[in-house]
Nucleic acid binder design. Structure first.
Lengths: 257, 257
DNA sequence: TAGTGGTCTAGACCACCTC
DNA sequence: AGGTGGTCTAGACCACTAC
């Protein structure tokens, strides 16, 4: 056991007290000055310790108010049912899910023509730098920023489905619109990754320090080829992704948190 | 445009230079003293800016060496094929996957009797606080800590499958062992979440600041009931989870990064 | 107005790495 | 030995929130 630096001791002690319930979710921590006295350290040292807990997502700070223990409220997404053509939904799946959870959905759209990035081109099996349509969506739940979603469609699809490039929402949903034109998605390849947000992502999703994002990339395939690639960026502290595989008829309904 | 604090300006400037390739992956940044001169700031202010980038996972620091731009190398896991009884593997799926990727796997096991936590009990549909078997596994790839995996089995399963409680590996794999006893898993419920690691997790996985963990919870069901719950904790910077849904016969082989 | 956190400085000393 | 980051202090001033 080597001696820990003082700011680590501060962080560890506070973490213990948060874990054991001395400070529950939403509780205010003592002020920096009080902690400095308690730990016999300078204000800056105490700040280092608090900063550690902030960047680990355990507490938040607000100027003029103090430090608070973070509360966690999680929204669950079912990726297996989402956009499933076997269980068709009216409008888009997101609004349906959110409304069913008793929350109020809200979203803003943007459509643009873009050059395809390396990453997207690979998944759409087109050339990097070629033209593609980007439909971008910024989603809120009860006015809290929740996720951003960017769907890329390859150039060749535009001949068949010109409405993809038009601004504004497609009422029946793009998947259904495409299916009506004979472009039916029969398979999805999903990828899930996590990392700390870029400043841009932190701004759009109003993410504070210490909160990672979850990246969900879904590539939709027809029987012949990939037709779209959707990258959804979620606040990691507010979302959980669910998948169902095989026969789950034995599952009952009391597993939600 | 409000005036940014100086340490933010430092962080932003360095981030721009990393993004545009002035400092590529693995490159050394100038020393704190040099940056202090360049930005006309004190060493502490520069440190605040650098600290921000560290906690955002963009750079790392080592005493005596300096700051380095983080490199990213990602290992892909296919959760749809993993442990699939239709595509049986010899031994466990993890070793097979890693070996196929040209890497050297290594793992340590631990088995213990535990009282079931609320979270696990809910998923196994047993009472919280009841007894369960915990099989814990710490996995490495090329001697780098990769993931920890904790599988919980309910008490009632022990009568049928006593070897679950015995220490040491089960050569043919636990899923196959159970199937041989008539306990066949026909469905999985997967949940994926992300957050910053606890100090304990950071220690086991040797995670530095600014790297989140990915939590993969898989509950396995027979035709009648859940029989196991596996919680895997991954380093978020080294792993990506993949799922395949529906018909992907159109997918070709050149999408790997 | 008083109390909170946010920014910034100047300087001291320590621990680690390389030569 | 010299350069690097790591820890810590004491103090100043600013910005925000509450009362």
């Amino acid at each position: 056991m080597s001696k820990q630096p003082k700011y680590q001791q501060v962080a560890d002690a506070l973490r213990r007290e948060i874990d054991n319930g001395t400070y529950g979710p939403g509780a205010r921590l003592p002020s920096e000055a009080e902690l400095a006295t308690r730990f016999e350290a300078s204000r800056n040292t105490v700040r280092s310790g608090l900063n550690l807990l902030v960047s680990q997502g355990l507490i938040t700070s607000s100027q003029g108010l103090g430090y608070e223990v973070r509360k966690h409220e999680v929204f669950e997404l079912n990726a297996s049912r989402f956009e499933n053509l076997q269980f068709p939904q009216n409008g888009d799946a997101y609004s349906t899910d959110v409304t069913n959870a008793g929350r109020r959905p809200h979203q803003t759209f943007r459509v643009e023509l873009a050059t395809t990035s390396e990453q997207i081109a690979q998944r759409l099996e087109v050339e990097a730098g070629s033209r593609s349509v980007l439909r971008f969506c910024h989603r809120f739940v009860d006015d809290v920023p929740w996720s951003t979603q960017a769907t890329h469609y390859p150039d060749w699809l535009l001949q068949k489905a010109p409405r993809l490039a038009e601004p504004g929402d497609i009422a029946e949903g793009t998947t259904r619109y495409l299916a009506g034109l004979g472009v039916e998605q029969v398979g999805y390849a999903d990828e899930i990754a996590t990392r700390m947000p870029t400043p841009e992502e932190a701004r759009l999703l109003e993410i504070g320090p210490g909160v990672p994002v979850m990246l969900w990339t879904r590539t939709g395939y027809t029987a012949d080829r990939p037709v779209r690639c959707t990258v959804t960026t979620f606040r990691g502290d507010l979302n959980r992704m669910n998948y169902e595989i095989g026969d789950l008829s034995a599952r009952n309904e009391n597993e939600a948190q």
